[in-house]
Amino acid sequence: MSLLLRKSVKLLAPAALAQMTIASIVFGIITYNYQGDFLNSLAYTSVCFLLMQTGYFAGIFYMVWSEFKRKSS
């Protein structure tokens, strides 16, 4: 595995949180422009952010589980 790929696989928490926040803000702006309703776009943006956080947690959980499985074998 190349060094660049190894560094990108680590899922660093501050960078991931910043990227998810930026993506959620952009998603919120696009949703507001499309629908024109602030509360509805805020709800969609919150759901989007929660789904991204869930995916991040699942990725971290999978990495820890696979490392534990590899070391216990």
Rank of each mutant, 00 (worst) to 15 (best):
T45Q: 12
T45I: 02
V64R: 13
Y62L: 15
G59S: 15
R6L: 15
F27M: 07
R6T: 11
Q19F: 10
Y62P: 01
L5C: 07
Y44R: 08
M52A: 04
S46P: 03
S46V: 06
T45V: 14
T21M: 14
C48A: 11
G36K: 03
I25T: 09
A18N: 11
L42R: 03
K7W: 12
G59D: 09
L12W: 01
A13T: 12
E67A: 14
S2F: 00
M63A: 12
N40A: 13
T54Q: 14
G28P: 00
A18H: 04
A16D: 04
Y56P: 05
A16L: 07
G36E: 04
I22A: 08
S66H: 13
A13E: 05
Y44V: 05
L51I: 01
L11C: 13
A15W: 01
Q53M: 14
F49S: 01
V47F: 09
W65P: 00
N33D: 08
L5P: 00
Y56E: 07
F57M: 05
F27Y: 07
K7M: 15
G59V: 07
V9I: 05
Q19K: 03
V26Q: 02
M1K: 06
I29L: 14
K69Q: 10
T21G: 13
A43Q: 08
T54S: 05
M1F: 03
T21L: 15
L50G: 11
W65M: 12
V9S: 08
D37Q: 15
F49A: 10
K69S: 10
G59K: 08
K7R: 11
F49T: 06
V64A: 08
I60W: 03
S2I: 02
L5A: 14
S72C: 06
S73Y: 01
S66K: 11
N33L: 15
S41A: 15
L39C: 01
A43V: 13
T21S: 13
G36A: 10
Y34Q: 11
D37T: 01
T31F: 06
K69N: 15
A18K: 13
A43F: 14
Q53H: 01
Y32F: 12
N33A: 08
F49M: 02
L5S: 13
Y62A: 06
L17E: 04
G28I: 02
F68N: 10
S73F: 02
Y56A: 07
Y62N: 09
I25V: 13
S72T: 04
M63G: 09
L12I: 10
M63V: 06
M1V: 11
L42F: 09
S46N: 05
T45C: 10
V47S: 11
I30K: 02
L5N: 10
L12V: 00
Q35V: 12
S73M: 01
Q19G: 12
G36V: 05
S8G: 00
F27D: 08
T31A: 15
L51N: 08
N40I: 15
G55M: 12
